[in-house]
């Protein structure tokens, strides 16, 4: 019997470049209050959102993914021909067939790449980053483009104030490649399918979530996932420069930060609050926040970033990465 040949990749990977995009249309809390029973103060107090971006009818998930992916390549100084795999975490692709990744790869100029979507809802980007890193380490891929892209306004009832004020549209991407020193730590991930009814598509049409239950889960169960990601990377919480929880709700973000600080994270750890001006963009929220924070100077190249995503499934994932 012939023995199969296996490949072994490099020991370490890192994020080589990042990029993001958002629709031009800014929607303020006052805009929403014009056609539903809510107001600016109520929204700011409950979820911390000041404004968000909504895509137009002709602005599709794949269009935003192409823009974000191309920016990540440009940021890394990489040519599309260098990319051999495209992973597209999302949960709002309007058609199950075809997937988004293959057409997005083609439009960016990446030809013949392995391309697939994954759905881990708001944890999707961290799942995608883990897959990208391990595909490279395993020798299956050279450089992997991970693009979290969502058009949540397609699945949100515009008259439902429990969801319409929260969710928004956008895309964020990271190019992952081999590295001399580890720049992406091991993933801490899992799921709780017994709580599937906490976030789901009601009547297969509109996103529904049990707000209080999701809040309780996220504020009690996610900090330990983040802590484990730090331990798996061989670091201490005090080593973390930047915390980027999925931008679900500012009060969840602040609660996770508070728990981590009680366990040793630094008071001067930067905590992402990109939800204030981007809303909740599910699998796009973490790379959007990282890109915005680096652009504004609150995060610098080389910073130790702790990312943790959590959402429908329930599913969750976190890892440490070094900001490119």
């Amino acid at each position: 019997m012939s023995a199969l040949t296996l490949r072994q990749g490099p020991a370490a990977t890192r994020v080589l470049g990042i990029g993001s995009t958002q629709p031009d249309r800014v929607v303020t809390n006052d805009d929403l209050a014009r056609h539903m029973d809510t107001n600016d103060q109520w929204i700011r107090e409950r979820v911390g959102i000041v404004e968000r971006r909504f895509a137009g009818e002709d602005e599709r998930l794949v269009d935003m993914a192409v823009a974000a992916g191309a920016k990540a390549l440009a940021d890394a100084g990489a040519d599309p021909s260098e990319v051999d795999t495209v992973i597209l975490p999302n949960c709002t692709m309007p058609t199950p067939i075809p997937n988004a990744a293959a057409q997005v790869a083609d439009r960016i100029g990446i030809t013949g790449a392995g391309a697939f979507d994954i759905n881990a809802a708001c944890a999707g980007f961290c799942y995608g980053l883990a897959l990208a890193s391990d595909l490279i380490r395993g020798g299956s891929a050279g450089k992997v483009l991970v693009i979290g892209a969502e058009k949540l306004t397609d699945v949100v009832d515009p008259t439902d104030r429990s969801t319409a004020i929260i969710f928004a549209d956008g895309a964020g991407a990271a190019l992952v490649g081999p590295a001399d020193e580890p720049g992406i730590g091991p993933v801490s991930w899992g799921s709780a399918g017994d709580q599937v009814d906490m976030i789901y598509m009601r009547d297969h049409k509109y996103l529904f979530q049990e707000g209080q239950s999701v809040f309780r889960w996220a504020t009690t169960q996610i900090a330990p996932v983040a802590t484990q990601a730090v331990e798996l990377a061989g670091l201490q919480l005090s080593d973390v420069d930047v915390l980027i929880p999925h931008q679900a709700n500012l009060r969840i973000v602040e609660s996770i930060a508070k728990r981590l600080r009680a366990q040793g994270a630094r008071d001067d750890m930067v905590v992402a609050d990109d939800i204030r001006y981007s809303g909740n963009t599910s699998s796009a929220s973490i790379p959007l926040a990282l890109d915005h924070m680096r652009a504004s100077g609150t995060v610098s190249s080389g910073d130790v970033v702790l990312a943790v995503g959590f959402g429908a499934g329930l599913s969750y994932a976190g890892q440490v990465l070094i900001c490119p």
């Binding site: 107090e45 409950r46 049990e210 707000g211 209080q212 239950s213 809040f215 309780r216 504020t219």
Partner: peptide, 26 residues
């Protein structure tokens, strides 16, 4: 006190008093 703060109060009360306060009881 809003509904989310009620959850935070419940979580802290659970830790402090050794009691379970499910959301439907809350």
């Amino acid at each position: 006190i809003d509904s989310l703060s009620m959850v935070e109060i419940a979580v802290q009360a659970e830790d402090r008093f050794g009691v379970k306060i499910p959301d439907d009881e809350l």
